[in-house]
């Protein structure tokens, strides 16, 4: 199934605050695209726009499935999830007073995912063995790293075609960040996913990205067609790494 996400001139904001000012970008089938930028530059807002949580004031977000375009700015979050888009939200947003397994089963709520529930559950437990050991434990009682694994696993339970990951590194130790990012790469290869990852940890993000965009103050200021282009770009060094 051919998939393409095309974001065209998105403007969005909260009240008087303009968070996104004409953002355009593309994610093609099978790619891992990194959306880079420090805190408060609009990464999460863009993710929320794609998921229908925040309505853009103008612009289009087109998800093309086998050439059929769906304008996500006109669909509800539930409908977008129904198309096969899953978000691992910032802060994980687990159901803390439900068990690990109940969280995973909720991930498979969308109709298309229900027939594959046994297979997906097995895959999740295979990938994250700690989740299997703790499947009867309440999600809120686990460590930050384990919760992040659960959040990713829960998103995979919906059999997504496009996986959005918002700041997987927040609140995790450097080793766990590295593990999580590696895990996303492995899962992506195993499931044939297309991934858009918003991340402020530049070095971790470019480890698994095919290419990326740099967002500053709600605008895409640089598009790196390869990881090398991102690493050697003066703007990236200047705005982001502080090493120019």
């Amino acid at each position: 199934m051919a998939l393409e996400l095309e974001i065209l001139g998105i403007h969005a904001g909260y009240g008087a605050v303009r968070a996104l000012q004409g953002v355009s970008m593309q994610v093609r089938d099978g790619e891992t695209v990194a959306l880079l930028g420090t805190n408060g530059n609009g990464k999460s807002t863009l993710m929320k726009c794609v998921m229908g949580n925040v309505r853009p004031t103008s612009g289009q977000i087109l998800l093309k499935l086998d050439g059929v375009p769906h304008d996500l700015t006109r669909l509800s979050t539930e409908e977008i999830v129904g198309l096969g888009v899953a978000l691992v939200p910032e802060g994980r947003r687990l159901f803390p007073r439900l068990t690990v397994e109940e969280n995973l089963l909720l991930g498979a709520f969308r109709r298309e995912a229900r027939p594959h529930i046994a297979k997906n559950l097995e895959l999740c437990y295979e990938t994250f063995s700690v989740l299997k050991e703790r499947r009867r434990q309440l999600a809120g009682s686990m460590s930050g790293g384990q919760q992040q694994m659960l959040a990713i696993a829960r998103a995979l339970m919906s059999s997504p075609k496009l996986l959005l990951v918002d700041e997987p590194s927040v609140g995790l130790s450097p080793l766990l960040v590295s593990n999580t990012v590696t895990m996303i790469k492995q899962l992506k290869e195993k499931h044939g996913l297309t991934v858009l990852m918003a991340e402020q940890n530049f070095h971790q993000a470019i480890r698994i990205a095919d290419r990326g965009y740099l967002i500053v103050h709600g605008e895409i200021v640089f598009e790196g067609r390869t990881v090398e282009e991102l690493e050697h770009n003066d703007m990236v060094k200047n705005y982001y790494l502080g090493t120019a």
């Binding site: 949580n53 509800s76 978000l87 939200p89 947003r93 159901f95 109940e102 909720l106």
Partner: peptide, 26 residues
């Protein structure tokens, strides 16, 4: 509440409505 999709969603909706939306439930 524990064995059906809707039942689990009922337990979840009290905890985080926004997150439940991300699971594809209204």
């Amino acid at each position: 509440l524990s064995r059906t999709f809707t039942g689990r969603a009922i337990k979840a909706v009290a905890q985080d409505e926004g997150a439940l939306r991300l699971m594809g439930a209204d």
